[in-house]
Design a protein around this nucleic acid. Structure first.
Length: 660
RNA sequence: GCGCCCGUAGCUCAGAACGGACAGAGCACCGGACUUGUAAUCCGGAGGUCGCGGGUUCAAGUCCCGCCGGGCGUUCCA
């Protein structure tokens, strides 16, 4: 007999040679039916694994995160088998699990490529394989046996060699139980065996709730200099309902796509004539931007920032001194050569300009901290193929600031900056944040260890003081300073990297920045880079997706639309509209040349927060019929003043209006 | 950059697998009628070198080649 410890602390006796599957069966038919793998002493293993005496075991159900990973990984194997059936001689690379799904990379014979129609064929063969209910059986092999088994599969052999090399390293480090590198493989049938760490479901019959989603190219080991492979992405779930739920979430994300909303609401466009990644904002989008920027300006003024402006192009030397030309050239537009022999760059960053503002005359410690702010337009040459809507553009406006301060002020300034960021983002209706703190890289870094430690500790304190989740990116900071980035989760749970607060020990040095201290000696200031929206464009896109186009009233291009029922109500409607406008609201009247139902529909589709209908009753009573976005039914007979107060309050509170 | 997909009216898309009767629809726009109390009123009109160039053919949105533009992906040890 063997004794097994269960997660609830109880123990169970099982006959010798019992497997995890036996345990699941013992625990009940429900457990057995949903089991896809087991966790033994913290390691995921197959259900067929024998249990050793004293092990802590939990059964992994299909619907758990770990269980889904097993299903996805197994489905990836089925896909690989299907591809091999359809393209004999295809070489297999890797087929890992990713968020919500999996992919598998292949090199097809004769350099063939997958097309979208191929997905249908692969899908059909996969369903055959699942119907065949092939077992997944594990084999453990020595390195030499592995290399022999995967003759003709060079990628698999490369992986085996990497595993072997890794094992030697572990050996050299003196690790106990790694005697010899062992690899494992899973065989489904005579025709198909794949190198894999496992675990897998017991047999292919356990799978089936999957969908192949897209084809893509990808490089072996993610290295663009190496072989390009053909990738198929898919998703797989424990049940048809879970799959349907996921597909529904995809549709929801599609529905919220800011490019679609931006077009539908006439906010911005990307004219081909201008170029990839270069948006123009239409009048309505312009209103939203102006509101965003005006509010940001006001907050910056309140927080003690000074406003500066800098040109869009500069002589090359500026970015040579800053170092950008050396390590950032790939992302910069190529230089412009002028007749007089000088070279200019379109600016990819604002920092050197702000530095020159600082350096324009001698500075005293009395002037610090100096906080220079600018909505600075920058241009970055993003590779064709990475440009995406407003979220990845080639021309953008950063709400950029650079704070120059003394070392003594550093901690306080970091605290202020981070607090400021979080407050401002909250005003835009984002309230689910987490922070990522990148600390000093191991190899090389400028600045003293003490500076790094102090700054890192400060950033951590602010984060913890706010009760925010803090993810440590150990050693992930840039060599020139530690960084904290603010990530926001949107309404459907997606993460957006937004603001960054970054310390810089390097640029003040490269530009020889100095201030005169109270001791009448020269000192070097410390510099903080920070952006709140990151880029106005990207933040705009994110807000559109977060709100699915239902912008809060204060940001809505048109806040109020007044609809007279008939022509003879137009006069009253106009007068009412003017009252809203006089109250500082963006209101417009649309006359009765279309039926009321049509006009209401248009207004709703335009996601206008307040649609006011005025008819005979209203004319005589001085009221309006109020349709608030998101409300099921209108509220009739509301006094005009009350309706104005309602809308003004929304604006004043920056209330996030409900969706329509 | 590379892979896949796409390019027909301002927009969304049919027509392409089979070359000929194929320049189409809806929305938007313009004109007229309708005068409306809560998510699409009716009638009419205008609008396209089918991304560009070349080729095959009696005949090319449709087949072939090249180019341009757009979208998606490029989520790193089995």
């Amino acid at each position: 007999m063997v004794t097994i410890k269960l997660p609830d602390g109880s123990t169970r006796e099982l006959p010798k040679r019992a497997t995890a599957a036996d345990l699941a069966a013992e625990m009940g038919p429900g457990v057995a039916a949903s089991a896809v793998a087991a966790e033994v002493n913290g390691r995921l293993v197959d259900l067929a694994s024998p249990l050793v005496d004293g092990a802590s075991v939990s059964i992994v159900p299909a619907g758990s995160e770990a269980g889904r990973d097993v299903i996805r990984h197994s489905t990836a194997h089925v896909m690989a088998q299907a591809v091999l059936r359809l393209w004999p001689g295809a070489r297999l690379a890797i087929g890992p699990v990713i968020a919500d799904g999996f992919y598998y990379d292949f090199e097809l014979p004769g350099g063939a490529h997958f097309s979208e129609e191929d997905l249908v064929r692969v899908d059909a063969v996969m369903r055959d394989i699942i119907a065949e209910d092939q077992p997944f059986s594990r084999e453990e092999l020595s390195v030499d046996e592995g290399l022999a088994l995967f003759e003709g599969q060079p990628y698999k052999q490369e992986i085996i060699e990497a595993v072997a090399a890794g094992a030697e390293e572990v050996d050299a480090a003196g690790s106990a139980d790694v005697g010899r590198a062992v690899v494992s493989a899973y065989r489904n049938s005579e025709a198909f065996v794949d190198l894999c760490r496992g675990p897998h479901v017991p047999s292919t019959g356990r799978l089936g709730h999957f969908r192949l989603t897209r084809v893509a190219g990808a490089y072996w080991r993610g290295d663009e200099h190496r072989q390009q492979l053909q990738r198929i992405y898919g998703t797989a779930w424990e049940s048809e309902e879970a799959l349907a739920g996921y597909l529904h979430r995809l549709e929801e994300a599609e529905r919220r796509d800011h490019r679609r909303i931006g077009h539908e609401l006439d906010l911005f466009s990307f004219p081909e004539e201008i170029g990839s990644g270069l948006p123009v904002f239409h009048p309505k989008g312009g209103i939203v931007r102006r509101e965003m920027e005006d509010y940001s300006r006001q907050r910056h003024a309140d927080a003690g920032y000074d406003f500066v402006y800098s040109p869009h192009i500069t002589k090359a030397s500026l970015f040579e001194v800053s170092g950008h030309v050396d390590w950032y050239a790939d992302s910069m537009y190529p230089p412009m050569e002028l007749d007089d022999g000088s070279t200019y760059y379109v600016k990819p960053m604002n920092c050197p300009f702000h530095i020159l503002v600082f350096r324009s005359r001698q500075r005293s410690y009395r002037e610090l901290p100096m906080r220079l702010f600018e909505f600075g337009s920058v241009y970055r040459y993003e590779k064709s193929g990475v440009v995406h809507g407003l979220t990845r553009v080639r021309g953008m406006t950063q709400d950029d600031a650079h704070i120059f301060c003394t070392r003594e002020q550093l901690s306080d300034e970091l605290t202020r900056a981070l607090t400021f960021v979080l407050d401002l983002l909250s005003d835009f209706g984002l309230d689910d944040f987490w922070l990522e703190l990148s600390t000093k890289p191991e190899d090389k870094a400028v600045g003293s260890d003490q500076d790094w430690e102090e700054a890192t500790a400060t950033l951590r304190e602010v984060a913890e003081g706010r009760g925010l989740e803090l993810v440590l990116d150990e050693g992930g900071g840039a060599f020139y300073g530690p960084k904290i980035s603010v990530q926001a989760r949107d309404a459907i749970g997606r993460n957006w990297q937004i603001s960054t607060v970054q310390l810089d020990f390097q640029l003040p040095q490269r530009f020889g920045l100095e201030y005169t201290g109270a001791d009448n000696a020269k000192h070097r200031p410390v510099m903080i880079h920070r952006a709140l929206f990151g880029s106005v464009e990207r933040f705009f896109g994110m807000l559109l997706e977060h709100y699915a186009g239902n912008l809060p009233t204060w940001l809505s291009p048109e806040q109020v639309r007044v609809l007279p029922v008939r022509d003879d109500h137009v006069e009253y409607a106009l007068a009412t509209t003017e009252r809203f406008c006089a109250a500082g609201l963006r209101a417009q009247m649309v006359d009765a040349s279309e039926p009321l139902g049509t006009r209401i529909r248009s207004a709703k589709l335009e996601k206008i927060p307040y649609v006011l209908v005025v008819g005979g009753d209203d004319v005589s009573a001085g009221t309006v019929g109020v349709n608030r976005r998101g409300d099921d039914r209108p509220q009739r007979g509301v006094p005009v003043d009350q309706a104005i107060a309602l809308a003004r309050d929304d604006v004043a509170q920056r209330r996030t209006a409900p969706s329509g």
